[in-house]
Design a protein around this nucleic acid. Structure first.
Lengths: 195, 195
DNA sequence: CAAATAACATACAGGCTGTATGTATGCAAC
DNA sequence: GTTGCATACATACAGCCTGTATGTTATTTG
């Protein structure tokens, strides 16, 4: 498919400029208060270009979100040590998640505006595909041999993931980073403790 | 204050109609996709009435949210048994929260659109004033004598609260209610277990 | 009963979204 | 090399929505 590709670099540059401008404005003013005229002005293109590459404003937002979620997943994966014991790997991944989410704007994009604009289902799917998978696999490994059924582990994963999200939000909002980190580690340890 | 109150019943009826219509539409279509003409048509008033009683669309939304948060808090408090041991009181409160949040539309209002429209800070404040207070007090009681400092307990409260929220969302989205309830109870038990 | 004010109703201005239409440029085949 | 077509935009337009400004009615108070 797609043998003919006229001027692909220019198109890619346009998309890139739109994504960068949109990300900045969405973070600064939120999705609802950011207009497409503002975005294209910041990206130095026209609205025609925007609507040529993206179906609508929400589609552009989705592209921004996907990029961001992938960046988070990549950073987590980059900081993973492949041959660490399950318990420690899980802990390291948790800290890496908090670190990745402390990049300015990420909590607003991924945790506040994202669910409202794309629906919580879409975000959960993205999460599962990227960041949360690491968490679930870590939990499964740490809880092996499985003393619980699959649905329980899945639920536990979701709950812990939500706790991590809240920690990231609280820290970005100026909360006590050390306290939230400690509480998070405490949660993970208590959950994985071979009772 | 407020000695003169011309036609207060009529005004109250108007507000009530607006709140009811707005709640229904916000739940069905979300805040962004609900227009004020739609709301006033459903409430059988005019836009003039809306902007007379509320500063703007977001202010009406805030009123809906506050009503809903108060309802949740009331339901939790109603199901509390005052003289139960701390551990059991906490568990009961947790289940009551899940039950209260299963009223249709509540998760979308309080957990999805609310944070995006009002900002996560405003919602957290509302939470702390109503539902989360019960949780924090329960945790403090269950963890007494305090083996941890205040900031840690506060953080732990926030994390657990987020886990509860996610459980409510997952259940409303069609998740395995039993699994999520069990996982939530497991979390609370492990956290309050005298290590 | 007169004045003031609440409780609306109506009209309007500005901005934003999405679409429809127009234009230029590269690639490809002939 | 030019004819044809698709990509990559640019421009113009229609409709809707929000918030405000202004007008009207009906109480309540002095």
């Amino acid at each position: 498919m797609q043998q003919r590709r006229p001027n692909p670099e220019r198109a890619e540059a346009t998309r890139s400029a739109l994504l960068a401008a949109a990300r900045t404005l969405f973070v600064e003013k939120g999705y609802a208060d950011t207009s497409t005229p503002e975005i294209v002005a910041a990206a130095k293109v026209t609205r025609g270009a925007l609507y040529h590459h993206y179906a609508d404003k929400a589609d552009l937002f989705r592209a921004v979100i996907e990029r961001e979620a992938k960046a988070v997943a990549d950073e987590i994966e980059a900081s993973a040590s492949p041959d660490a014991p399950p318990g420690e790997a899980l802990l390291r991944g948790s800290l890496a998640y908090l670190e990745a989410m402390s990049v300015p704007g990420r909590t607003r994009l991924l945790l506040v505006d994202g669910p409202a604009v794309l629906g919580p289902g879409a975000l959960a799917a993205l999460d599962e595909a990227h960041a949360a998978r690491t968490l679930r696999e870590g939990l499964e490994a740490a809880l092996r041999p499985p003393r619980q059924e699959g649905a329980f582990i899945e639920a536990l994963t979701a709950l812990l993931s939500a706790a991590f999200d809240r920690a990231a939000l609280a820290i970005e909002a100026g909360g006590d980073r050390a306290a939230y980190t400690a509480a998070m580690i405490g949660l993970v340890e208590r959950v994985t403790a071979s009772r």
